[in-house]
Amino acid sequence: MIEEFILRTHGKRRLDFADYATYLYLLFGTFLMFGPVIWLVLSSFKPQAELSRFPPRLLPYRQETVMVEGYDEPLPLFNVTMPDGTTQQLAQARRVGIEAQMIDPANPTEMLPVNINERTAVEAVYFGLENYTDGIARFNFLQYFRNSIVVTVSATILTLLFNSMAAFALSKYQFRGRDTILLLTISTLMVPLSVILIPVFLVITEIGWNNNLLGIIIPAAATPTGVFLLRQYMLTIPDELLDSARIDGASEWRIYLQIILPLARPALAVLTIFSIMWRWNDFLWPLIVLSRSELFTIQVGLNSFQGELQTQWNLILAMTVLTLLPITLVFAFLQRYITSGIATTGMK
């Protein structure tokens, strides 16, 4: 059946060894790429006790409980092997050493002493949200999320505006210094931030943007990659369009606004996606600029959270899931544009 379907798309008589190898590799790759994330999500629903269990189980489980007359709290349910060999579901009232006091929920007056080795917990699959609610109570997720949104949105808007303005000038005007500016832009493509960390930190401190979101937004606004990408695209826009607009009395700014920008929309879309990706995932620079925790972006916040709570994996896992959720949604709905955008521009 499956083979028939696959063959139809191949237009071949039968699958050869290379086809099998390809599909095997791709399926293994799918498992390797998605598996860890799925494992993270499943784990994030497990309570702390379940997380420290070895070997771990795939799905999150929770012990069933039952309300018993005469007890305020619900009691945990166990399957107990009775002395006569039958199994019965009993609730545990209390436990002393290796002996547990069990009650039959249907008959709460009778106490049965049971060795703890003769009982197993009654469990059911349960996706608990406790890790998420507890995590949000301890980890200022919404604040960090807000900071990240502020940084991402404003840096992206500024990037689009400044980069497209510069690209317009560099592609459509003849002016003194143009080639120098272009050369400087291209050469800074190869200067990563990590090489100039200290002096940039000085500049930020002198301006007074240390511990200020502006210190992350503004330096990132002028990306050489963006200028380069947009300029290459704008070169393909015919000059005659601009000339006829000028004859009609349009100002240069109007031309930029109403001719260049709409025509450069595909390139702007690619840059938008990249800018969102860059700024949302930025780590090193925010780590240096932000030291007050209420200003942390989500990445810096998550990193310091995992440093504080070394062993409380239940909360860390839940917060990690919340962090990867927005970008996963973006991926799910825009993946076609993202992948084709990268393939055509060759940048990240």
């Binding site: 791709l26 790759g29 799918t30 790429m33 998605f34 860890p36 994330v37 494992w39 993270l40 784990s43 990706m277 949302w280 995932n281 780590f283 989500i298 990445q299 998550l302 990193n303 995992q306 994996w313 860390i316 896992l317 990690t320 962090t323 990867l324 970008i327 996963t328 973006v330 991926f331 993946q335 076609r336 993202i338 992948t339 990268i342 990240k348």
Partner: peptide, 23 residues
């Protein structure tokens, strides 16, 4: 399949680190 292999690229470095630390 093309997007499958691309998906981890979008994840932030901190998330990648924590996923694998957990595993």
């Amino acid at each position: 399949f093309r997007s499958v292999f691309f998906y981890p690229v979008l994840l932030s470095p901190v998330v990648v680190a924590l996923i694998w630390k957990w595993i």
